[in-house]
Design a protein around this nucleic acid. Structure first.
Length: 566
RNA sequence: GCGCCCGUAGCUCAACUGGAUAGAGUACUUGGCUUCGAACCAAGGGGUUGGGGGUUCGAAUCCCUCCGGGCGCACCA
């Protein structure tokens, strides 16, 4: 980023009339290392020929640029100005990167600021399924990335531990369930009851009212219902924590919707008092026509609270307690309207503080392109998915590497299997729906976590065998591939920054993959340990040390381990 | 019916948010292990970016329209 900033300042110094020259890092090295489109922008404004404007700019830049910094600046294509860094500049940059070691990539843009990332949000008394997986791993990665940018990140697991669903479950338990069955196999049994309830609703519409009734009792503090709720919640948490442990994911705050039930009455009366909420068909609603949104329901006609209302209470509470700069909700697309409404109501109520952002992601669909629903029992369970992938990973490792101890093999299987699972989601633009496909989840080749892990494991072996690195002469690295690798390393902080701003992870994943592709090319074409020129060998070792470190750190940001050997 | 998202190579997806010759993986064909770990590398074919129109130096990206898919739209979360 330093380099990019330098070029930006340089261009702006030559073009005082332009505000904010845009410099982009070029993908294709034949088009320079960096480029700018200011000449085209300027030409448009002034009605001039873009290439001519470009040539003028290049002429003045050549005088203004520090000597030897660029090897070439040229106008190309429709009027781009392309910058080619000199080998000297690249070598000097690598020297810095090498010195920074694992600190390289750390940014300070978020320093002194707090951000709450809310993710995972499993529902009590249900199993986590593939849908929760997306929120969990995207949220975890975003939290890591924001942390790398200097933010103090609060990882929040907002449990679905309140709502009518518990009324339904309690009704189902009281009607068809029994204590010993739940004790024996808590989650299985509760899930069975829940699915059974929804089956029965299809033929008996009155059941929905029964469920609401039980929830209402729960909300009013009915002792029996309270006890049941508490029991179900505890059993579920135990189950969730097992899954999180396997995924290597943890949270700072485990506060769910139930925490805000006390604040429902005051917040509802406040909305009434402020004239924001009005009665409609017995329920309390907020009109959002001005915002171009449908009416939002904030309290049911029986007085019971709703999701949206609890979310509002939570926003207010979070602002008060943590004073975050942002609250980021990592929640699926299907809830887009809910968040638009919630943000709009919050604004109307004058709840200010954190910027509220919905980092939405596409659904996981079945092979029939339909939503996988828990109610119909169609969802693939997370624990089942993880178990399967761990077995497969271990098989693959056994085939590749016979000499590992059982303990080591298990450990590596976890890194590979879980890594593949996570990377599979994180490499994609989170907006698109995903059609669930076992084969894709279990693919360990090509653009996948195991490819990156493998790349680093090979480099690690060389570094280990290469011995101590000292007195590195970076000018030894002068071949195209070597210089391209350095340029690629230079892009790392920029990719982290971009991910933090856009809340996307796919650019970072794609960056790591393209770095690994170059690294493997280098590996195949340059036999480092056999290099007879000692100075060259040292420089090669230093280069791959930096590459290995960036891959490790990049994967770490995505929540993926990269063991020294796999 | 209304709103939001999407449609790119056989399949799964990118494309720096309006930039250069639309790129990867996978599958397929071919070549490379006595050489730092072949979960790798090299080479090849594969496209009217769903159709049509518009905006401008420049469109997969923005606007209009049609076709196809997904998800929402008052007492679930």
């Amino acid at each position: 980023m330093r380099i990019k900033e330098k070029i930006k300042k340089l261009v702006e110094s030559q073009l005082p009339e332009i505000s904010g020259a845009e410099i982009s890092s070029t993908e294709n090295p034949t088009l320079g290392h960096y480029s700018t489109n200011v000449a085209m922008r300027l030409a448009k404004e002034q009605g001039k020929n873009p290439q001519e404007v470009g040539r003028e700019l290049v002429a003045s830049l050549e005088i203004a640029a520090p000597k030897g910094f660029f090897s070439k600046i040229e106008v190309a294509g429709p009027g781009f100005v392309n910058f080619y860094l000199s080998p000297k500049t690249l070598q000097a940059e690598l020297k810095n990167i090498y010195k920074e070691k694992n600190k390289y990539g750390k940014l300070s843009s978020g320093k002194g600021k707090k951000v709450i990332v809310e993710y995972s949000q499993p529902n009590i008394a249900k199993k986590m399924h593939v849908g929760h997986l997306r929120s969990t791993i995207i949220g975890d990665a975003l939290a890591n990335i924001l942390e790398e940018c200097g933010y103090k990140v609060i990882r929040w697991n907002y449990l679905g531990d309140w709502g009518t669903q518990f009324g339904k479950l309690i009704y189902a338990y009281k009607t068809w369930g029994n204590k010993s069955a739940v004790k024996k196999n808590p989650i299985e049994e509760l899930l069975r009851l829940y699915v059974y309830f929804h089956d029965r609703v299809k033929t008996d519409a009155l059941l929905d009212d029964k469920g609401r009734e039980e929830f209402n009792k729960l909300e009013r503090g009915d002792k029996e219902n309270r006890a049941l709720w508490k029991w179900f919640r505890e059993e579920s948490l135990k189950e969730f924590k097992k899954v999180y442990k396997l995924l290597g994911i943890d949270f700072d705050v485990w506060v769910g919707e139930s925490a805000y039930e006390q604040q429902m009455a005051p917040i509802i009366s406040e909305m009434k008092k402020k004239g924001i909420a009005t009665l409609s068909e017995g329920a309390l609603v907020v009109d959002l026509a001005e915002q171009g949104l449908p009416v939002a329901l904030v309290a049911k006609s029986d007085g019971a609270s709703l999701y949206l209302t609890r979310d509002l209470a939570s926003v207010r509470d979070r602002n008060k307690k943590y004073k975050p700069e942002q609250i980021i909700y990592v929640v699926a697309n299907e809830q887009t309207l809910h968040f638009e409404q919630m943000f709009a109501v919050a604004k109307k109520m004058g709840i200010d503080g954190a910027e509220l952002r919905h980092a939405k992601f596409g659904l996981v669909l079945g092979e029939d392109r339909k939503k996988l629903s828990t109610r119909e029992g169609r969802a693939i369970q997370l624990s089942e998915l993880i178990a399967k992938i761990l077995v497969l990973a271990e098989d693959a490792i056994t085939k590749k590497n016979m000499n590992l101890s059982a303990v080591k093999r298990k450990k590596i299987a976890k890194a590979i299997g879980i890594g593949a699972l996570k990377y599979n989601d994180l490499k994609e633009n989170r907006n698109s729906d995903i059609v669930f496909d076992w084969n894709r989840m279990l693919d360990f080749s090509g653009n996948s976590a195991p490819y990156l892990q493998y790349t680093r494991a090979r480099l690690s072996r060389i570094i280990k065998k290469g011995g101590k690195i000292s007195n590195v002469d970076f000018t030894m690295l002068d071949k195209d591939l070597e210089l391209n690798l350095i340029k690629k390393l230079l892009d790392f902080p920029e990719e982290i920054k971009k991910s933090a701003e856009t809340l996307y992870t796919n650019n970072l994943a794609g960056y790591l993959f393209s770095l690994a592709v170059l690294a493997n090319k280098f590996y195949e074409t340059t036999h480092i340990l056999k290099e007879e020129n000692k100075k060259k060998k040292q420089a090669y070792l230093a280069l791959i040390t930096s590459i290995s470190s960036v891959i490790k750190k990049g994967l770490g940001l995505l929540g993926i381990e990269s063991p020294e050997e796999i």
